[in-house]
Amino acid sequence: MNIILTGTTGFIGSALLSTFSQQYQVRPITRAEAGDILPEIDWTQALDNVDIVIHLAAISTSCLTVFLIRSQNSAL
């Protein structure tokens, strides 16, 4: 089974990565040190031949700020 796991640098994600890697093919998806995972990943390619996606990544403060600004601008 092929699994994509986001948030692997966090407490729960790192534990799941360690456990699942013993039995399954796991692709850990991590973010850049000061950014969010979304702009850095080609999801079409990343999801190729994947059976399960476990998304544990939290939204970063910088990404949340950009989202809020975009939301305010689109509401105008």
Rank of each mutant, 00 (worst) to 15 (best):
Q45M: 09
Q45D: 09
G13L: 04
E40S: 12
V26W: 01
G35V: 04
Q72V: 07
N2Y: 03
T61A: 14
I12Q: 09
W43A: 04
T8F: 04
N73F: 15
I59L: 12
M1K: 10
Y24M: 05
S21D: 04
L38V: 08
I52G: 08
L64E: 13
H55W: 02
A32Q: 11
S74D: 09
T65Q: 15
A15E: 14
L16P: 03
T19M: 14
D48L: 13
D36L: 02
L56D: 01
I37F: 05
G35S: 04
L47S: 02
Q22M: 08
P39V: 02
L47Y: 02
S21F: 02
P28E: 01
Q23T: 11
I41D: 00
A46C: 06
Q72T: 07
Y24T: 00
T30W: 05
D42F: 01
P28K: 02
Q22Y: 07
P28W: 05
A32W: 06
Q22P: 00
L64G: 10
E33V: 09
N49V: 03
I4K: 05
S60N: 06
A15R: 13
S18V: 12
I59N: 07
S60L: 05
S18M: 13
E40A: 11
D42T: 04
V66N: 11
L47P: 01
G13N: 05
I29N: 05
I69Y: 13
I29Q: 02
S18E: 15
L68G: 10
R70G: 07
T6Y: 03
L68N: 15
P28V: 06
Q72W: 13
L68D: 15
A46L: 05
F67W: 15
G7W: 04
T44K: 12
Q25L: 11
I12L: 13
I3G: 01
L64S: 13
R31I: 01
F11K: 15
N49D: 11
A46N: 01
I69G: 06
L56C: 04
V53I: 08
N49F: 07
G10W: 01
A34T: 13
S74K: 14
T19G: 09
R70A: 09
R27Y: 09
A34N: 13
A75V: 07
V26R: 03
A46K: 02
Q45K: 11
D51V: 07
D48M: 12
N73S: 15
T61P: 07
I29D: 03
I54N: 05
C63A: 15
L56F: 01
M1E: 10
Q23A: 07
V66T: 14
V66I: 14
I69L: 10
W43S: 04
T8H: 07
L16I: 03
T65D: 15
A15C: 13
T30N: 12
G10V: 05
D48C: 12
